[in-house]
């Protein structure tokens, strides 16, 4: 297994792995856009959009990948479903279902065959932040700010990032110097053509 320190740092770090596009980390999921608490009457959220981003579905995908985990983390009991269809010209919608005051709870809503969504947001050609803004406006969710401790952790991470960037530059300089030296030596031995330098 990977060293404990490496794993711990990965858990704490706030960044996105570029290859997988999967944000993996603890602070990331607590702090940032989407850290909000939905009101109690919201019973379900469902999204539908295209499998690829062409046709204006990029915002929806970004919203799912970057903000939905935070919403789910803060509201663990609210089911969030995603269905992705095959046509770029198809809809990109976000449905918010609420258990209305008349019905007792979510049980009644789930027993009816096709509950109608209370709010619907069109996500086509919208950025993820705009989608989030509409979601907050329609559900009147309360946004959670970073606590003092979390802010401290964020600041510490920034310092660490700056330091590692400086270290990286230092190492790169040394490596470059070493490579230059090696190249000159190879040139001296005549292994390399002078013209190719």
């Amino acid at each position: 297994m990977v060293h404990v320190k490496v794993r711990m740092r990965k858990l704490r770090e706030v960044s996105i792995i570029p290859a997988a596009h999967v944000p993996l980390f603890l602070l990331w999921i607590r702090v940032g856009p989407g850290a909000l608490i939905l009101p109690k009457d919201v019973s379900k959220i469902s999204l539908e959009f295209h499998k690829q981003i062409n046709g204006g579905h990029m915002g929806a995908k970004k919203f799912w990948r970057e903000m939905l985990p935070r919403i789910k983390y803060r509201n663990p009991s609210i089911p969030i479903q995603i269905s992705r269809h095959d046509s770029p010209s198809g809809p990109a919608l976000l449905h918010i279902y609420t258990a209305s005051a008349g019905t007792p709870s979510a049980d009644a809503a789930s027993s009816s065959p096709e509950p109608t969504p209370t709010h619907t947001i069109d996500m086509k050609l919208q950025t993820s932040s705009l989608i989030l803004q509409q979601l907050i406006e329609k559900t009147k969710a309360t946004i959670l700010d970073a606590t003092e401790q979390e802010q401290e952790e964020l600041a510490a991470l920034e310092i660490q990032k700056a330091r590692s960037e400086a270290d990286r530059a230092l190492v790169r300089e040394k490596l470059d110097a070493k490579r230059r030296e090696e190249k000159l030596l190879r040139l001296a031995r005549g292994e390399l053509e002078a013209a190719s330098v």
């Binding site: 999204l47 799912w64 969030i80």
Partner: peptide, 11 residues
């Protein structure tokens, strides 16, 4: 489980 369910949202 709370963390993992959040990371797996929509799957």
């Amino acid at each position: 489980m709370q963390y993992i369910r959040a990371f797996e949202v929509g799957r």
